[in-house]
């Protein structure tokens, strides 16, 4: 089996890697937004509860989350598909980090922005949607793209709950071919091929954000 054949064999698992990543984002982005905003606005016991949920997802090792949800939930009668468990565990873990970017972006805004919105007679929710979030998104975007790349790489773990992703395929091939060196090198190349475009896209977005800030700074 040539290097290219191995690579093609590994890419059989691309579908699973991609769907875990995309479903993972479907969990991560809403979680990050909702919990980041809640952490920004709440105080006292509610804030403690919000922080606890964020910290649970953020501070647990993903591999442990995967095992817990994949192997123990069925014992209490909840059976979820491998993809669902993988997307949830990886997505909410990344979402936990993302929520901190959301909160930090909201907190770093000039309080005068909210005051101006209030003075104009806007409701608090309108101030959030029309004034705070549009400005915070700009600050959040680079972090979100980095976490998207983290998520792609994180999906390698799902091979441990029997999903046939790129890593799982590599294990299969290496066992069939007795060529761990060639196979895992090919696997590295495979992840590079998937992640590098995302990195380039991230750099492009970061530059765009920087440029729009610079031109706005000119008088």
């Amino acid at each position: 089996m040539s290097f290219v054949d191995i690579l093609i064999g590994i890419f059989d698992g691309f579908g699973v890697t991609a769907s875990v990543t995309l479903w993972g984002m479907a969990y991560a982005v809403p979680f990050a937004l909702v919990f980041g905003i809640l952490q920004h606005f709440t105080t006292g016991p509610v804030r403690f509860a919000v922080t606890s949920i964020i910290e649970f997802w953020r501070s647990s090792p993903v591999i442990v989350l995967l095992f817990v949800f994949y192997y123990t939930l069925p014992t209490i009668g909840i059976t979820l598909s491998g993809i669902t468990v993988a997307a949830m565990a990886l997505g909410l873990n990344i979402g936990g980090y993302g929520s901190q970017a959301v909160r930090a972006a909201l907190q770093s805004l000039d309080p005068g922005q909210v005051e101006a919105g209030k003075a104009l007679g806007l409701r608090r929710i309108q101030i959030l949607m029309l004034i705070e979030l549009p400005q915070a998104f700009k600050a959040m975007t680079p972090t979100f793209i980095n976490q998207f790349i983290q998520l792609i790489k994180g999906t390698a773990l799902v091979s441990l709950i029997t999903l046939t992703d790129m890593t799982f395929r590599a294990k299969e091939i290496s066992q069939l071919q007795y060529d761990p060196v060639g196979t895992y090198t090919a696997l590295l190349v495979a992840y590079f091929i998937v992640c590098y475009p995302a990195t380039i896209f991230g750099r492009w977005v970061e530059k765009r954000v920087a440029i729009s800030e610079r031109t706005q700074g000119e008088i």
């Binding site: 000039d110 005068g112 005051e115 101006a116 209030k118 003075a119 007679g121 608090r124 004034i131 706005q216």
Partner: peptide, 18 residues
Amino acid sequence: HELRRDVGMVFQHFNLFP
């Protein structure tokens, strides 16, 4: 918020929406 609509305010640091 309804009462504030009738009271305009101008701030020291402008506070325009960038």
